[in-house]
Computed example of a mutant assay.
Amino acid sequence: MEAKDLKAQMEYRYMGNTGLKVSIVGFGNMIIQHQGNAQKTTNSIVARCLEYGINYFDTAEFYDEGNAESYLGQAFKELKVPRESVVVSTKLMFGTGSIFNVKTPPPTVVGLSRKHVIEGALRSLRKLQMEYVDIIFGSRFDQYSPLEEICRAFSWLVEKGYALYWGVSEWPIDATVEAIKLCHELNLRAPVVEQAQYSMLSRERFEKEYKPLFDKHGFGATIWSPLASGILTGRYNDGNIPNDSRFNDNPGFKHFVMSQFMNPNNKDKNVKILNDLGALAKELGYTQTQLALAWAMASKDSSSLILGFSKLSYIDENLKAIELYKKWSKEIEQRCEAILGNQPIPSMDYVIFRPNPQRREAAVFGKRPQ
């Protein structure tokens, strides 16, 4: 299918209860590395994403040790992309170093102190060559900074127009709810979006712990690692790491992923799941990657799936998942659930609180979220 045909199929969802619309698939440039032709690669990927109708682009201050924001901003400039036509987010917490390579950064350039939030945001804007970002995230919770200080700093960015919205990424639910409450009490701009890990192999936190954020507080959700860092692509179905896997170049990242999905306690179980998913995908006429992505799209609590394309061919393959998502049915859902066997049981049903019609009607085929 041509890009123009898939662009016609592109779905745009509200970011929770905001008026902001984002494409169901977004581009995140975490895995673009500064070695080689990083800028040329970014330019070509951004251009192809725009052809497909992707309007959401995600980056962070620490991606590629602080270089990724510059690649993305320069790509928009060279491609002459109108600022109002794209939604751009960045994240603060880890400074400009790599979280997978153990280093000791200066204490003032990490965390979510007022100093780092404001200085980090302004630095990100300079690299992006933008006057504002649409969304700025606190990327992980900083337990050492006072929560009021964190909320006031992000609210200040919104009030000053440096960001239009702010959100959190992988914060404990109690901290997020307390931040919402605190912002309302202090008349501050409250967070409105969660950036969470979510995939067929990682569901508990998104579907259970974060459920009140989506149902009660109307949060949007941008999804990272919907392919479980590549585990769901079919390349790891034998339980081994291919020679050309990016894990081989980054031992820290390899440990982070494999300890989650291929540790001694779950490897045999997950290998069986992967092979069964591969067989189902083949039966449906799609790749395992496309099945995994369509499954994640079928959760209406997901606003946008962040995909880390490193090659143009990956865009072509991955976005064909939209075609399968458009055909999603109760039967496909049930067959996936029979293979996975890992659907969390929510502790409480908040459906009566859903203020957004998109959410009240979100129980796709009576499943995620219920």
Rank of each mutant, 00 (worst) to 15 (best):
E2D: 07
A3G: 03
A8I: 09
G19L: 04
K21E: 04
V22Y: 03
V22F: 01
G26T: 15
N29G: 07
M30Q: 07
Q35V: 10
N37Y: 12
Q39C: 00
K40T: 14
T41G: 05
L50A: 02
Y52Q: 02
I54S: 02
N55K: 03
Y56K: 05
Y56L: 03
F57G: 11
G66N: 00
E69K: 07
E69H: 06
Y71C: 11
G73H: 10
F76I: 06
L79P: 03
V81I: 14
P82G: 05
V88G: 10
V102K: 14
T108S: 15
R114C: 06
V117C: 08
R123F: 07
L125M: 08
M130L: 11
E131T: 10
I136D: 11
F137C: 05
S139N: 14
D142C: 09
D142W: 03
Y144T: 12
I150N: 05
I150H: 08
L157V: 05
V158H: 06
A163F: 09
L164Q: 15
G167H: 08
V168D: 04
E170A: 12
D174E: 14
I180F: 11
N187V: 11
A190K: 12
V193T: 12
V193A: 10
S199I: 04
S199K: 05
R203M: 12
E204C: 00
E207S: 08
K208W: 03
K211E: 11
L213C: 02
L213W: 07
A221Q: 08
G239A: 08
N240M: 09
N243T: 14
F247H: 11
F247G: 07
P251R: 10
F253S: 00
S259Y: 02
N263R: 07
D268G: 01
N270Y: 13
N270M: 00
K272R: 04
N275L: 04
L280M: 06
A281R: 09
A281P: 03
Q288E: 13
T289H: 09
A294W: 09
A296V: 08
K300R: 12
K300N: 15
S303G: 03
S304W: 07
L305H: 02
L307K: 01
L307M: 04
F309V: 02
F309M: 05
K311L: 13
K311W: 11
K311Y: 14
S313R: 14
I315N: 02
D316H: 08
N318M: 01
E331F: 10
E331H: 05
R335T: 00
C336H: 10
E337C: 03
P344K: 08
P344F: 13
I345M: 15
Y350L: 12
I352E: 15
F353Q: 15
R354K: 15
P355E: 11
Q358E: 15
R359G: 11
A362E: 13
V364Q: 09
G366K: 09
P369D: 11
Q370F: 11
